[in-house]
Amino acid sequence: MQNPNLTRRRMIAITATALGSTLASGARFARAQDAFRWHGSALGAQVSMEIYHHDRAEAERLARDCLLDVRRMEQQFSLYRPDSAICTLNRTGILVAPDPEMVALLKQSLIFSDLTGGAFDPTVQPLWRLYADHFASERPDPEGPSQDRLADVLTKVGRHGVQVGDDRIALTNRGAAITLNGIAQGFATDRVVEKLRKAGLTTTLVDMGEIRAIGSRPGGAAWRIGLADPDRPGAITERIDLIDRAVATTAGAGFRFDAAGRFTHLFDPRTGLSPSLYRTVSVVAPTATEADALSTAFSLMAVRQIQEIVASRPNVLVHMIDSEGALVACGA
């Protein structure tokens, strides 16, 4: 299991510059002239909602209901909770009568794994364990784990070792384990958005670690989102506009096992290594689930491969900063 004191999957902040409110410790309900803003903590990150609703009490109720849903999803997807469904699956290799949301998210994970040729792979958790144990040991080899240990762990990795059915989820490779940290925040964001849409909301910004907009800002302007620079705290690389779309950002700098930054939380499931193709990858997509999964996968893929996938996905845009600091954009 990942150590919650080390990091969450992504420490790169996606700053919603439209919000502008200072986060408080714990949950906080703030009142604004036209908006109801909620800030708190969930899914290992600071989260927020900006809701425009004529009834402030109803907006507050909706925010609390959404938070309850997110807490319930944490109980399914969190590697930080020993009693979560995912920890039970990793420990026993099987889940009987799994929660429908666990089934839905795993099925989505396997779809994106197939789409990206295995670059997105929920079974890379054994690689995290390998590197965490290696660099937590006394005088770890700066070159990383031995080739023999890496080769052994790679036998446990591979999406074909996951069987997902409505009544049963199983890991067929001995020692296999999954992580949903590359997609769960996007999935939770979409679930919250679905709930708010069903309640009739048409102007809302949801940030559950990934950001998704419902409609535009009051007056019709787009939500303006600032993408944080992973190497310069507080700096923004660029700003993008969102209307009825989502954005997610992934960067190796989100967590580094070693001081040199050669080994990060981004694992290539084919080699077990951490490529440094890009400083940061941001994906704009119709849903936060898609943006989240693709930003993870694209961090491990060549530009040509990314372009081929983007060409097949409606309304997907990619903003990347390569290892030399150059901005690369894909999509219309």
Rank of each mutant, 00 (worst) to 15 (best):
G234L: 11
S274Y: 05
T204Y: 00
S274P: 03
S216T: 15
L67T: 07
D34E: 10
F120S: 04
G215V: 08
L277G: 14
F77E: 01
T250P: 09
Y278T: 07
R139Q: 13
R270D: 13
A13S: 10
T287N: 03
I14T: 14
S146T: 14
L89R: 01
A260I: 04
A248C: 09
E50F: 00
S295I: 00
G254E: 07
F36Q: 06
L127P: 04
V283F: 12
A59V: 02
S25M: 13
I240Y: 01
R279N: 08
T116S: 11
A221F: 04
V328N: 00
D148F: 04
N173P: 05
D244V: 08
R64A: 09
C87L: 02
D141R: 03
L273C: 04
F187R: 03
I214M: 09
D65I: 08
D167F: 07
T250D: 03
I306N: 01
T155C: 08
S113V: 02
A35D: 06
A42H: 07
D229P: 01
R197G: 04
A297L: 11
Q147K: 08
R91S: 11
P100K: 07
H39L: 12
A260Y: 02
A136S: 15
M102N: 09
A253N: 11
L67S: 03
L23K: 14
Q2Y: 14
